[in-house]
Amino acid sequence: MSLWPYFVVMGVFDFQRNPNTKEKKLPDRPARRTIGRKNEDVAKVISTILAFHFILYGAFYGLIEIQHLMPDALILLIIAVIGAAMFYTVTPANRMGHAYLSSGQIAIIHFICSFVAFTVLSLFIYDNVVSTEKMLYIGAFVLSTMLIFSKKLEVKE
């Protein structure tokens, strides 16, 4: 929800704009995305990154809880496989998002999705209820990063 007003201000959801003025035009790859495809792309990017963080932290923190049941070498192997598989999955989403957003803005999406995934999962795994005071600081933290990376992406034709 916190991403929504941000994207409105940044004009990411402005699908009526000419698509060619909104994304970087690479020499060998002309911007051909239609309005409908842009809509689909942004939705895909956010949902993939959110799913990535849920699976990554779910697997990671869940594994830490049951680590005493397995030998250390096996734990390290599973951790490496989880890391490799997750980063393999999220790479196309990042690349797709970069057509519309700067790297700082993609970092913010990761950051917010990570906070959401961590807060929800830690509630189930660690019974870690986030206090109202902490929620306030997290909100201020997210808002501040949005302000820092608030410059709109310049399109170079």
């Binding site: 951790i79 890391g83 598989a85 980063f87 393999y88 999220v90 790479t91 196309p92």
Partner: peptide, 13 residues
């Protein structure tokens, strides 16, 4: 993706 997977494994460890 392949390079990211290798980096991801190092990061996770």
């Amino acid at each position: 993706q392949i390079v990211a997977a290798i980096g991801g494994a190092a990061f996770a460890l």
